[in-house]
Simulated scan of single mutants.
Amino acid sequence: MDLDLALRVDFPPPLTDKSTSDEKKDIERWEKSNRMSMMIMKKAIPEAFRGTMFDKITTAKEFLVDIEKRFLRNEKVEIGTLLTSLISMRNRGKGNIKEYILEMSHLASKWKGLKLELSEDLLEEERLKQDKA
């Protein structure tokens, strides 16, 4: 069915008087693929992610690029939130150390999920803060 044709191939050149029947078929296949891809994405992706730009975007490839940009912005916010949580987190001696370790492990796994690494300087600074507390 070539549903992903519109995602793999750029829009074919416009038809001219000298266009062959194969070129016309290619354009028809591409347009059908684009329509089907857009329809599937419109139904599958929640409206909160689609936003108002969806009406202005005409190709499936443009739509995916726009969605990717939105997630990159959200990833930066998530990185900031995780870093703030990691830096401000400390065991105050009142709670269970096991819960503290589990929470730290959870933050570390989220951090690794974003494919980020913490520098040794930052970790050492955090250890010194913990020792003082």
Rank of each mutant, 00 (worst) to 15 (best):
D4L: 14
L5C: 00
A6V: 12
A6L: 00
A6P: 01
R8P: 07
R8E: 06
R8M: 12
F11Y: 05
F11Q: 13
P13D: 03
P14K: 12
L15H: 04
K18V: 05
K18M: 06
T20G: 15
T20P: 09
E23L: 09
E23Q: 07
K24Y: 13
K24A: 14
K25P: 05
K25V: 08
D26V: 11
D26H: 05
I27L: 08
E28Y: 12
R29C: 12
R29I: 15
W30G: 07
W30Y: 04
E31V: 08
E31C: 08
K32G: 04
K32D: 15
S33H: 01
N34I: 04
M36N: 01
M38H: 06
M38Q: 03
M39W: 14
I40T: 15
I40N: 02
M41G: 11
M41N: 05
M41T: 02
K42H: 10
K43H: 11
K43C: 10
A44V: 06
I45H: 02
I45N: 03
A48T: 06
F49Q: 12
R50G: 02
R50K: 02
G51V: 11
G51A: 02
D55Q: 15
K56R: 07
K56S: 07
I57W: 15
T59S: 01
K61R: 15
K61Y: 08
E62S: 04
E62T: 01
E62V: 02
F63K: 01
F63D: 14
F63A: 12
L64M: 09
V65S: 07
I67W: 03
I67F: 03
E68C: 01
E68G: 12
E68D: 11
E68L: 02
K69Q: 13
R70G: 08
L72A: 00
L72R: 07
R73G: 14
R73V: 04
N74I: 04
K76I: 06
V77G: 01
E78M: 10
I79M: 11
L82H: 09
L82P: 09
L83P: 03
L83F: 13
L86W: 07
L86S: 07
L86V: 00
I87V: 05
S88T: 09
R90Q: 15
R90E: 08
N91E: 05
R92C: 11
R92V: 15
G93Q: 06
K94T: 13
K94H: 08
K94I: 10
G95A: 01
G95R: 03
K98D: 11
K98W: 02
K98Q: 12
E99K: 10
E99F: 04
E99N: 10
Y100L: 05
E103T: 11
M104C: 07
M104N: 03
M104K: 00
M104T: 01
S105V: 10
H106C: 07
H106S: 15
L107K: 00
L107T: 08
K110T: 06
W111K: 09
W111H: 11
K112R: 10
K112V: 04
G113A: 06
G113V: 12
L114D: 13
L114H: 13
K115T: 14
L116N: 09
E124A: 13
E124D: 15
E126A: 09
R127C: 09
L128Y: 02
L128A: 14
L128I: 15
K129I: 14
K129P: 01
K129A: 12
A133R: 04
A133T: 08
A133D: 06
